[in-house]
Amino acid sequence: MKEHLDLSRRIQNAASSQEVENVKALHTYYHGRADATAEWAQIWSRSGDCSWAHAFGRMRGFDQVWYGSVTQYDQMAMQNWMELVEIYPEVGGKDPRPIMEASVHTLVTDVIEVADDGLSARASFITPGVIHSVLTTEQEKYCNVLWERYGSDFICEDGQWKYLHEHVCPDILTRLDALNWAAEDYARLTDPDPKAAPPPTLGAPPVSDPGPMHHPYSVLSKPQDTVPWPEPYATMDNDNTYTPFL
């Protein structure tokens, strides 16, 4: 219990904790429609301190985050659509972004802490996810299973809760029930002609902090604690953040 805080602050923080859950869920549903514009326009702080990190590294500052997460993502969707329309003309007239894929990262195993000062919040999640699409240039639908962990920082700006930092840690990537991710990795490692591990991400946008910032599961490495759960804290600082402040 937070008895060191006055009752009014505790009530505000309880409401903030729920607001943060909604912001995080909004991310999931916007991302499910590949609507990066809505996500970054509506639920992100435009602060120079904002950051978005993945295995490939960390983008810092809103311009760089927008370029990597919106501009390049939309470009990928448009390129996909340009190829797809040659095969499936019924995609004509439809938003190319959700046509690309539904990337759904569910939120469970949440650990959420709101700062004593009520100005920020921190959360970690395990996210069992699926990425699926029906109309593809390969003319085969697909569903990938992508299990990740999230470390998320939020701040309250003018009464609205916004993302400040996101660190995405991909752990398991496989195809829905067609493969066994652990046995496949062992088979790869013991193959007399071993191949490199498949890349864990879709690409590598320009970053300020180069990766790798997280390694997916491998038989030969320890599970990483890249985004440790948040502890109760007073105010956001370099001891309580998923992105060190510069």
Partner: peptide, 29 residues
């Protein structure tokens, strides 16, 4: 009454956090 409402909400949040930490520890062996 209000204090009890607040304390109970904080309790249930703490219990969710506890089990989240437990699950994270299992991931980390």
């Amino acid at each position: 009454d209000l204090e009890t409402m607040v304390a109970r909400w904080e309790d249930q949040r703490e219990l969710k956090n506890l089990m989240g930490k437990y699950a994270n520890c299992v991931v980390l062996n």
